[in-house]
């Protein structure tokens, strides 16, 4: 079973406690390779290590999840199946309402890079989430998805409150 520290311990600390210097490309390649190898268990360990709010010491887990999501967009480095699996997992975790809004928002910001047509129907209800950050982040993901998000978004208009309606219509405006 993976632990977040299996991976975060390999990320260099911030310089002077605040400055991000990343890690050497070859070390990063090895680390990300091991993360892909760990599969869902590795991702889950990192997500479970996220604090409710950024700035609480969980920056390494955030960085690695972002690096994974980023690399998933490289069709040469990562296969379609792996990308799809990561996207599905992050989507499922963003929908888990036992997770703090700050964590779900972070996951949605990764999905802004990754989510495709298949995720739009599942993510659309989040534009009505009670947490404004989650609503905004969900709207951004669906805007990024584009045309395939139009019908799921329209489907959320019925019964939507003013804040949700604004998020929905704004997303539709930007997709147009």
């Amino acid at each position: 079973m993976s632990q977040a520290s299996d991976f975060t311990d390999r990320v260099p600390d911030l310089v002077d406690g605040r400055s991000f210097h990343s890690l050497a490309p070859d070390e990063a390649a090895d680390l990300l390779g091991d993360l892909w190898q760990a599969g869902e268990a590795g991702v889950e360990a990192l997500v479970d290590a996220l604090d409710a709010q950024e700035g609480s010491g969980d920056w390494k887990a955030r960085f690695l999840l972002h690096a994974l999501a980023n690399q998933a967009g490289d069709a040469v480095a990562v296969g379609a199946d792996q990308r799809a699996a990561l996207t599905r997992q992050l989507t499922a975790m963003a929908l888990e309402d036992h997770r703090p809004p700050g964590v779900r928002t972070f996951l949605l910001h990764r999905l802004q890079w990754l989510a495709g047509d298949d995720e739009a129907p599942a993510l659309a209800p989040l534009v009505a989430d009670p947490a404004p950050d989650v609503r905004d982040a969900a709207a951004a993901v669906l805007t990024a998805v584009g045309e395939a998000a139009i019908e799921p978004l329209r489907g959320q208009l019925e019964g939507a409150g003013p804040a949700s309606r604004l998020a929905i219509e704004h997303a539709l405006l930007q997709i147009d």
Partner: peptide, 19 residues
Amino acid sequence: LDDDQANRLVRQPMRAPWH
């Protein structure tokens, strides 16, 4: 070209009501 993820940085959604 052939990089949907990169295009999501080319064109980024704006927070409501801005566009």
